[in-house]
Design a protein around this nucleic acid. Structure first.
Lengths: 339, 339
DNA sequence: GTGAAAGCGCTAACAT
DNA sequence: ATGTTAGCGCTTTCAC
């Protein structure tokens, strides 16, 4: 009768009549083990169904082979698609990506950092939306952290961000080429350096460049779900606010908006042009297909991977880097001039 | 000069002039600590920037507070949306959900099971698509595993599955109410108990019930991306195969199909009706909105949570349960009779 | 080629 | 209310 269901190296060693050290050597494929001994150990492992206890291994080794990816929400297509790309890249380097959510709350984000620092992850990719820059600098992580997301934060961590301002500027400029009254869905002209604020900046920039005054009534603040986009357009229509184009802050919002326009019998792009932001996989398949801003998916994933791997390789503590990935306009069916 | 960058409880204890045990008690909020001592310990923790080492904690405790969710691909909307729901449920019970991918390969799936068994996770939710039932029974996991997904597998693990056959049957029956030639995109009439095979069974069942013969030419085998759905419809059109309705095996495929139909100038639902499967969040917002099968999202998440929590609570080794969540037809704009 | 000893950082159990 | 002991399962010396 075994004293426990959990089989340890000691059990294997006993059964094989060797020391735990020899078992360890066999398990880890280290050379200095005699062929006969190796056989006996392997037999014992099989017989007992032994499996390494990673918790113990990590305690000793100080690393886990796991890179965490902490995002606001697991179901947001932008992050789901980013996660896929990152998993591809890290897998190629023998690292496992695991994804968790922060709930877009300061608390959740700090949690994620704490978790990694607490050595569950060798490194962390953190999408920051609500955390304060100040809180970050105080954090004593050994594990490298690469931050992603919208805001440029002064911080001691590497940071890869998309070019929110310029992306929004491009989208708006394109719409201003044939229109005067561009509704903006989800922008936050008053905000600090958050995504909704940055994209609103780009919207403003394009208006100034084109010499078109901004009508505040054209900005509808909203969240970033499908229904939110739908409601935002409905709200414009219900209040009788005229518009001849729409800049939706995300593709998801754009999809909701598209639906609301269709329900109202408004032709896209003939009567109203629409541009989103994110270039989700589905954007190309909508009817009409969605013109949008590609925030540089591939470059983003590549940059994140490169930075984190460099830190993991223990490159001599270089300065924290900040990388801005350029955004590109993708014209499809919701604009009149399309590719 | 500290001898290392890593601050341990021993360091804190030394600074505070107490034993590590007292530090442990403070850190874990245990009662038997004097107020003054607690203050001193907290001060030392702050001063040194101490953080718990979870690896060590887990080694001792034998649990991690983390539940793994292993899915074929991180970017598949169905799984992303399921992950969100599961995270809600488990968070309410103080457990953290982390998501990883298996790549839909036997190897990746076995990996995930091994990982959990190796004590990184207290429990695992595993979406099985490629693994062989036989391989599962041989696995000696202590951590509870709940399998999800399409196939009914004889196994010693709990298993929650959607009713693929009946869902497909409902969709097909609905289409047969007004049509004769129902194209099927992605089905696998010849396969074993995989998702494409099960849904093809439902398709066949509905045909038999309606007394409509099945034309094999109407079945287009394909993968499950947007482009695959698009290509599948194109292939039917290019080969001149007439059809008056389409059953797409997933909503993603349906979205691609919708686009191909639009490109071909075919009116949906006037000329061709379409039903998908999954009821993704975006289904309701497409133009036209997508009629589909809701595979019981909420019940699925609830059932998975209930089963896993029960095992985690160490309920006396009950028989492995197999639960089938009913599917429901959701009629929207791609069918002529809609809600 | 193999083993003995020591200890990673933490906590349960038992002193005091 | 606080400290001591022991040990989770593994691996890094260093000895044989």
């Amino acid at each position: 009768m075994k004293k426990s269901a959990v089989v340890t190296m000691a059990d294997v060693a006993r059964t094989a009549g060797v020391s735990t050290m020899t078992v360890s050597n066999v398990v880890n494929g280290r050379p200095r083990v005699g062929a006969a001994t190796r056989e006996r150990v392997l037999a014992a492992i099989n017989e007992l169904g032994y499996q390494v206890n990673l918790a113990a291994r990590h305690l000793r080794a100080g690393r886990t082979g796991v890179v965490g990816l902490a995002v606001p929400e697991l179901e947001r297509p932008y992050f789901a698609q980013l996660a896929g790309r990152l998993a591809d890249q890290f897998e190629a380097h023998g690292l496992r990506i695991v994804m968790e959510r922060t709930g877009a709350s300061r608390e959740g984000e700090l949690d994620a950092v704490a978790f990694s620092r607490l050595r569950m992850y060798d490194g962390l990719i953190l999408s920051v939306v609500d955390m304060d820059p100040g809180e970050l600098t105080g954090i004593g992580t050994d594990a490298p952290v690469v931050m992603i997301g919208e805001r440029a934060l002064p911080s001691r961590f590497d940071h890869v961000l998309m070019d929110n301002v310029d992306g929004a500027r491009q989208a708006t400029a394109q719409l201003l080429a044939g229109n005067r009254r561009i509704a903006m869905l989800g922008g936050d002209p008053a905000g600090a350096a958050t995504m909704p604020a940055l994209r609103a900046q780009g919207y403003a920039l394009a208006h100034h460049a084109a010499g078109v005054p901004i009508d505040p009534a054209l900005n509808v603040q909203c969240m970033f779900g499908f229904q939110d986009g739908y409601d935002a357009v409905r709200s414009l229509l219900d209040r009788g606010i005229a518009f001849d184009a729409v800049f939706a802050l995300t593709d998801v919002v754009a999809i909701g908006a598209l639906r609301a326009l269709a329900d109202a019998g408004i032709q896209v792009p003939a009567e109203v042009e629409l541009i989103g932001f994110d270039d989700l996989d589905e954007a190309a398949y909508l009817v009409p297909s969605l013109s949008t801003i590609n925030p540089g998916h591939e470059q983003m994933a590549a940059a994140i991977t490169r930075l984190l791997l460099a830190r993991l390789a223990g490159e001599p503590a270089a300065e924290a880097q900040e990388l801005i990935v350029p955004a590109a306009l993708v014209l499809r069916g919701t604009t009149r001039s399309n590719g």
